[in-house]
Amino acid sequence: MRINEKKVALFIERFRGQGGIVELVQSWDEALDLIERKARTVAGPVAVATCDRKRLDGIRKRLDGISRLVGPHASPTDIAGCSLGITFPAAGIAETGSILEICYDDSDRLVSTLPSNHIAYLESFNILEGLLEVAPLVRQASRQNNFSATIISGPSRTADIELRQVVGVHGPQAVTVLLKV
């Protein structure tokens, strides 16, 4: 698969450089294949963040009989019991190799916080070049309601013990971006 756009290539390089995983897909169906495969591997309930009807139905159908689907807007305890969380970031940021999640309900935020595995579905035209391009999106969100915007750059990590780098101390141990190109 050819990645023509420089910023997309930079996003992939930098997100991977921070311990994140990027899988390229050409369609939502292909993304569903990967979600299904991951759900089978992690073997546990799957939490999903707020998304449009089409996406939600797609996930529900694919995971039927494989994993219990939790959410959107599930309780924290239910989300904490999930092995995989699926979110739909508002953007990717090439400069920092990050994804941007804007949530109007904290249960959506927990989907990328509590499960050990986080999958984010992102379309490449949503990748921004620089960090400062996030500002208009944040400002726009601020006009709608209370919200949280989180810029995520890879899995949760710590080096607090003898400087040994360990991932997943509190948040996800693996963050995968399914990037539709």
Binding site: R14, E95, D105, N146, A149, G171
Partner: peptide, 19 residues
């Protein structure tokens, strides 16, 4: 030496939790 810390959270007001 990171470009950003792993999580940068901007929180404006308290969002609801599951409504």
């Amino acid at each position: 030496g990171q470009r950003l810390t792993t999580y940068v959270s901007i929180m404006a007001g308290r969002s609801p939790m599951a409504g």
